[in-house]
């Protein structure tokens, strides 16, 4: 099969790859570019573990063709820390013990980031709604909800 070129900005740096047409963004990120922070849980859009942010919107990278992301700006969880300082969401996930095996965590953090980018002071219902496409085996969700609310409180303190 002919290879197709794909080019996008990943966590602030330019990436260019030749991929098989039909390659998912998840596969391109993990196996071509080597960013393994998006996880492949189901490869059919039902678990949320592969969530990434494409041009500001939450996307399931397992259902997104890489070639549709030409010219896009993509953020993954591995791009959130700046200069060795964790992103407030990452910090909050640690502080509230919202991670056990960690497999759902990058997807949860992506979903939470899109929520907080649009709604800096979300209600609990907003958080539940935002995370409703992501499943977690380990935590019982409550610590994750608390992590997002904690990070959001940090937002409102910074604004004050």
């Amino acid at each position: 099969m002919a290879k197709v070129p794909v080019q996008f900005t990943l966590n602030g740096s330019e990436k260019a790859e030749f991929i098989d047409s039909g390659t998912t963004l998840l596969h391109a990120l993990r196996d071509k570019i080597g960013d393994t922070s998006p996880k492949g849980g189901c490869h059919q859009g039902t678990c949320g573990a592969c969530s990434v942010i494409v041009d500001g919107e939450l996307r399931l990278s397992c259902l997104t063709l890489a070639e549709t992301c030409n010219g896009a700006t993509i953020t993954t969880t591995s791009g959130l820390a700046e200069g060795g300082v964790l992103h407030p969401l990452q910090r909050a996930f640690l502080d509230t013990f919202a991670t056990q095996c960690g497999f759902c965590t990058p997807g949860m953090i992506m979903a939470a980031k899109v929520l907080l980018d649009h709604t800096p002071n979300p209600s609990r219902e907003d958080v539940v709604e935002a995370l409703s496409g992501n499943i977690c085996r380990c935590t019982g969700y409550e610590p994750i909800i608390q992590a997002v609310l904690t990070a959001a409180r940090g937002n409102s303190q910074n604004a004050a």
Binding site: G41, C42, Q44, T46, C47, V127, V128, E129, L131, S132, G133, N134, I135, C136, R137, G140, Y141, E142, I144, I145
Partner: peptide, 17 residues
């Protein structure tokens, strides 16, 4: 065989614990 058929509750189905 997958998460469409294997029911896993999400964050909206929590009991007060």
């Amino acid at each position: 065989t997958d998460f469409n058929q294997y029911l896993m509750p999400g964050p909206g189905d929590l009991a007060e614990t």
